[in-house]
Simulated scan of single mutants.
Amino acid sequence: MFKRLGIALAIGFLRLLAVLPYGLVARFGAALGALLYRIPSRRRTIVHTNLRLCFPEWPAAERERVAALHFQHAIRSYVERSVQWFGSAKKLERLIEVDSEIDLKDPDMPPTILLGFHFVGIEAGSIFINHCIGRACGALYQPLSNPKINQIAIEARGRFNAEMVSRADSARVVLRMLRERKPVMLGSDMDYGMRNSAFVPFFGVNACTLTTVSRLAKAGPAQVIPFIGEVLPNYRGYRLKVFKPWEGYPTDDEVADARRMNAFLEEQVRKMPEQYYWVHKRFKTRPEGEAGFY
Rank of each mutant, 00 (worst) to 15 (best):
M1E: 13
F2I: 10
F2M: 07
F2T: 10
R4G: 09
L5I: 13
I7A: 05
I7F: 01
I7C: 00
A10H: 04
G12S: 03
F13I: 12
R15W: 13
L17Y: 09
V19A: 09
L20N: 03
Y22Q: 12
Y22V: 12
G23I: 04
L35C: 15
L36K: 03
Y37S: 10
P40W: 07
T45Q: 11
N50K: 03
L51A: 04
R52I: 07
C54G: 11
C54K: 12
C54V: 12
W58M: 11
P59S: 09
V66R: 01
A68I: 06
F71W: 11
F71R: 03
F71L: 10
Q72L: 06
H73M: 06
R76M: 15
S77L: 05
E80N: 10
S82L: 10
V83R: 08
Q84E: 06
W85Q: 00
F86W: 10
G87C: 05
A89Y: 08
K90D: 11
L95H: 03
E97I: 14
V98N: 00
D99R: 13
S100W: 02
D103I: 01
K105E: 02
D106E: 02
D106S: 05
P111C: 03
T112S: 07
T112C: 06
I113S: 05
L114D: 02
L115K: 03
V120A: 13
A124F: 08
S126D: 00
I127S: 04
F128Y: 12
F128E: 03
I129P: 00
I129W: 02
I133C: 07
A136R: 14
L140H: 02
L140W: 10
Y141Q: 01
N146V: 09
K148S: 06
I149Y: 06
Q151N: 10
I154V: 14
E155T: 01
A156Y: 04
G158K: 06
R159L: 00
F160W: 11
F160N: 07
N161W: 01
A162K: 01
M164A: 07
S166A: 15
A168Q: 13
D169E: 15
S170M: 13
A171R: 11
V173S: 14
L178R: 06
R179V: 09
E180F: 09
P183L: 14
M185T: 06
G187E: 11
S188N: 08
S188R: 00
S188T: 11
D189L: 11
G193H: 03
M194T: 14
R195K: 12
F199V: 05
P201K: 02
F202S: 05
G204I: 05
V205F: 07
T211F: 07
T212N: 05
S214C: 04
S214F: 07
R215G: 02
A217Q: 03
A219F: 11
G220H: 03
P221D: 00
V231I: 15
N234D: 15
Y235M: 11
G237A: 08
L240C: 12
K241Y: 14
K241H: 15
V242M: 10
F243R: 07
K244T: 04
K244N: 00
W246M: 09
P250H: 04
D252F: 03
E254D: 14
M261V: 07
M261L: 14
F264H: 02
L265M: 15
L265G: 06
L265E: 03
Q268N: 09
V269I: 15
K271S: 12
K271G: 10
M272V: 14
E274T: 09
Q275W: 06
R282M: 09
K284H: 12
P287I: 01
E290T: 08
G292V: 05
G292Y: 06
